[in-house]
């Protein structure tokens, strides 16, 4: 199973790189010129994102480094314990929408401490894979087109994250609980 997945992920990008230019050339498109024309927007797009990301990552970093995030975890713990949710995993759940790198760090630490095949290991692996860094994605995508009023995008993003979290706890409890 693992080897097959490995092979797939090794081949996807090279195959795309082969297929797309060949298809374009078959249609008589000047491939080099068209590529460069599209690529010329890359720098502008990346630079445009900077102020949005600075604003968001500074706030997240202050929230995390000050210990306010831990305080939030303490507040939430009594609510989640009855749901079969081990308190060790809570920092990951709170961190996941805010910072992809930090959440991955927490997940790695839990896997190293409790073992990948333990209940906590399976749960945090499932949580890491099933949700995304909602705040980062929203900041990046909206920032790239200069949108500052997100309307309900944060609500639906966080509702989806919370649902994935509850579903992870449910399914891992069902399949892996001793």
């Amino acid at each position: 199973m693992l080897e097959v997945l490995d092979e797939i992920s090794r081949w996807v990008i090279p195959l795309l790189l082969l297929l797309i230019p060949l298809l374009a050339a078959a249609r008589g498109i000047p491939v080099f010129e068209v590529f460069v024309e599209g690529a010329s927007q890359g720098f502008h797009t990346a630079v445009k994102i900077i102020p949005y990301l600075v604003a968001m990552l500074v706030a997240i970093n202050v929230f995390r480094a000050s210990g306010a995030m831990e305080a939030l975890v303490h507040l939430l713990a009594p609510l989640l314990n009855p749901l079969g949710f081990p308190p060790e995993v809570l920092p990951h759940a709170v961190m996941r929408p805010l910072s992809g790198g930090a959440a991955l760090g927490i997940a790695t630490d839990l896997i190293a401490t409790h073992g990948p095949d333990s209940f906590i290991g399976q749960l945090v692996s499932t949580m890491q894979g099933s949700t995304d860094t909602t705040f980062y994605v929203l900041t990046l995508y909206f920032g790239s087109v200069g949108i500052t009023r997100y309307r309900y995008a944060i609500v639906s993003g966080l509702m989806a994250d919370f649902t994935s979290l509850v579903a992870s706890v449910y399914i891992v409890n069902k399949l892996f609980h001793p």
């Binding site: 374009a24 068209v34 994102i49 990552l57 500074v58 202050v62």
Partner: peptide, 30 residues
Amino acid sequence: EGADKAVKTSLNLVAILTFWLGMMRLAEAS
């Protein structure tokens, strides 16, 4: 640290963005 990480993330995106935006244009044209 936060501001530093933000700028580095954006600049790291330049390479991959430039490349894939070119490929996207080709994929559209094809």
